[in-house]
Design a protein around this nucleic acid. Structure first.
Lengths: 260, 260
DNA sequence: CGCGACGTTGACCTACCTCAATTGGCGTGG
DNA sequence: CCACGCCAATTGAGGTAGGTCAACGTCGCG
């Protein structure tokens, strides 16, 4: 997430060129609803979202489905699947989606050539975990009105930042049914809440666009606090993450790969 | 998480000695309810739980509180707080808690001396994120009975693994009130559910112990699927995480630390 | 112009919440 | 050894947020 900022700020010009060339070489399109990765399968890639939204989700045996998180353009998706034997969740296209798909071999090459890339991606993964935690409290503690308001705030801020005053508009690619799956509500109830928000805050969610005339008012309704998005911390955060990569490199103490 | 397995399996004997000496030098106790880290503050350490349980939680301005996750003995807590400027959640002792508290300076030293440590801790962080996702679907989609059953299954499996047949007993340090905060329910309702589980599965939660005579039955009630715990994958997962640390070390392309 | 996807509405229902009182276990001090 | 106080578990009565079911409206697109 915030990968644009990270790439521009953290990679050297040479790394950045390698990175962007790699993305360009691995573009891929998915139609609405198509799975990028499926729970239980062996994961073989991570993705950078170019346009459209992706959704991480889990499904129960009886069909109940929970959207765990959304991945917006410019963000990183599912780096964690790289470390596990079998994916613990699925990832799908919310609508038509265009991504750069970085497989294992390509990832290996990039990490070798771009020493500043790993900390940047680590930061993105940490950020994803933080958002996941906020979703947990959102679903666990907020009522339906607060939940929907919170979702709208988050989506807006992740795309446009916190407005200094007033509000604005941004993309919003979810149907009310998908919003329901994301917030643990029903489609019918989300519909009623959206109508309430229209009346109370003049918020409009229509035609794949979200319009928030008064952001502060909506944020108050949701008790929205943007701290968990760690806005503007990407460069510093990735720099701090670099501590993990500070190992002495004499090689004497290094276990060989692939040991099990 | 599963740090015992990781430490034994992944670190060289020399690293392991350094690691364990470091833990021993940084032991610390917290009384019941005490905060290890507080939301909004600058985090300065991570922890290895020695005995007792820790809880990660978030609180809303009006006092509603959600437990985001539990950290059990032998597990890693809050490595992610190392990368952010200000903590996005709090961490507290569930009951009397004894931990090793590794501050920034000590962490830096360890990472430098133990090249195999970072991938291991990365794996632990990934695992934490996976558990967080399961909690999200748990709260979002399961009803109260399934939720409580799922929690009991998870706690049991994280301590004892999946029983081949029958069941067993393990520690369980939460009060019903804390269980409620963890699952987005009320204490009263948790109490009623626990009673149902006693009747239907002969499950007992009492005196800080959990007793599950028939694990399969309880797991069925919850649609519990242990995949998300990635049992037994610790060594292989950490080995895969090592890919992130594969950068060429000629130094020419390395950004200096602390740039902002 | 007809189909499919999404949004909207109404009537009714129930899982879970709220409030409030009571019980039981346990540690502590007298 | 008992009495008190605290904390957790338990119980009951009544309320409500949100679910369920089913129909209808609307818009875009082939």
């Amino acid at each position: 997430m915030e990968l644009g900022e990270i790439v521009n700020g953290l990679l050297t010009p040479r790394e950045r060129a390698l990175w962007e060339a790699s993305l360009a070489r691995h573009m891929r399109e998915y139609p609405k609803g198509a799975d990028l990765a499926r729970e239980g399968e062996k994961p073989g890639a991570f993705w950078i979202i170019i346009s459209g939204w992706a959704q991480k989700y889990k499904q129960m045996p009886d069909g109940r489905r929970q959207i765990l998180g959304l991945v917006l353009p410019g963000e990183l998706c599912d780096l964690d699947l790289f470390t596990v034997a079998r994916a613990d969740h699925s990832t799908a296209a919310v609508r038509r989606l265009s991504v750069a798909e970085i497989g294992r071999a390509e990832a290996q090459r990039l990490f070798e050539k771009c020493p500043n890339l790993s900390p940047a991606l680590c930061w993105a993964a940490m950020l994803g975990a933080s958002v996941q935690r906020e979703w947990t409290i959102n679903i666990g503690q907020r009522n339906a009105l607060e939940r929907v308001a919170q979702l709208l705030c988050e989506i807006y801020v992740r795309q446009c930042g916190v407005p200094v005053a007033g509000g604005g508009t941004c993309d919003f690619l979810l149907t009310q049914g998908q919003m329901a799956e994301a917030m643990g509500l029903t489609q019918v109830h989300v519909n009623r809440i959206v109508q309430q928000l229209r009346l109370r805050c003049a918020v409009e969610v229509r035609n794949m666009r979200l319009e928030i005339p008064d952001f502060a008012q909506l944020a108050a309704l949701a008790s929205f606090n943007a701290t968990y998005l760690h806005l503007g911390e990407a460069r510093a955060g990735a720099d701090r993450a670099r501590m993990l990569f500070a190992a002495e490199r004499d090689g004497s103490d290094r276990r060989s790969d692939g040991a099990a």
